[in-house]
Design a protein around this nucleic acid. Structure first.
Lengths: 113, 113
DNA sequence: CTTTTATATTCCTTGACAGGTATATGCGTA
DNA sequence: TACGCATATACCTGTCAAGGAATATAAAAG
C-alpha cells in the first residue's frame, strides 16, 4: 500500500473521506452513517491515517478523525499533467456539461478521427 | 475493476498514461520506453481502453494509443470536493502554488476545533 | 472494581489482479 | 505461400488486501 492512488482505490475509504469533508467525525459516527462494521471502519481509518489522509485526536474514549490536505494535493499534482490535455478537448467538455457555460456558438469543429 | 481509481492505482498504468501525454504512441514504443514486456503493456492498455482512458487507431500492424479525457475529469470531479478544504490550509497552498488565481483575501477564519 | 461503551487489533479465509510464458491473430512483404 | 513483425490473448501462479468474527485495550459510569 505505497501510493496515494492505492489508498483511494478502495470505495469504503473514499466514502469515509467524503464524509469527513463536512466535519470531523468519530469512528462510531462514521460506522453509523456508512452502515459499515466497526472493525472495517477502524481498519480503513488506520490505512488512511498512515497514508496521511486523516489525523485523529482523542476525546475521552472517542477518536475524532479529520482530513489532512497533503495526499490530496499529491493526487492533484499528478492530475495536473493531464489538465492541459483535456481542456484542449472542447467536445469532451461539452459531453460533460455540468458546467453552465457553453453556447459560445463557435463552429462545431468535429475532429473525432 | 469498476472505478477509475482502481485503474490508476497501478503504477505501470500511470506510467503509460504519463507517457501518452506528450503524444500518441504505439505498443512497441511504450514497451521500449518503459522497459516493460510486451504482453504486460498490451494487458494494461486493454484495461485502460475499456475504462475509457485511452483509445487506439490502427496503423498497419501497429496500434496507436492516445489519451481520452473523460476519466481524468471524473477523478478531478471527485477531487473537487476536497479542494475547498485544502485551500483553507494556507500553508498547504504555499507548498502547491502553481495556481495564479484567487487572492480574494476573504477573512482567514481558522475553525479547526 | 465491575460493567459498559468506544475503538483497535489479530487471525483466518477468500478473491482479485499482476506478472510470466506460451501461443494466437493479423498485416506486410518476399 | 511462407515468413517476420506487431500486438493480443490464454493459462497458470503467487501475492496481497479486504472482510468477518473474535478478542484486546482503554476510558467512563455505576
Amino acid at each position: 500500500m505505497e501510493s496515494v492512488f492505492e489508498i483511494i482505490a478502495e470505495p469504503n475509504r473514499r466514502a469515509i473521506l467524503s464524509l469527513l469533508v463536512s466535519s470531523q467525525q468519530s469512528v462510531g459516527e462514521i460506522e453509523r452513517q456508512l452502515r459499515m462494521p466497526q472493525p472495517t471502519v477502524s481498519k480503513h481509518l488506520r490505512v488512511l491515517r498512515e497514508a496521511g489522509f486523516v489525523e485523529s485526536t482523542v476525546d475521552a474514549q472517542r477518536r475524532l478523525y479529520r482530513l489532512k490536505p497533503q495526499p490530496f494535493q499529491e493526487v492533484d499534482a499528478w492530475l495536473a499533467q493531464f489538465r492541459r490535455f483535456w481542456s484542449a478537448h472542447v467536445d469532451a467538455l461539452e459531453r460533460h456539461l455540468d458546467r453552465v457555460q457553453q453556447s459560445t456558438a463557435t463552429k462545431t469543429k468535429k475532429k473525432t478521427k
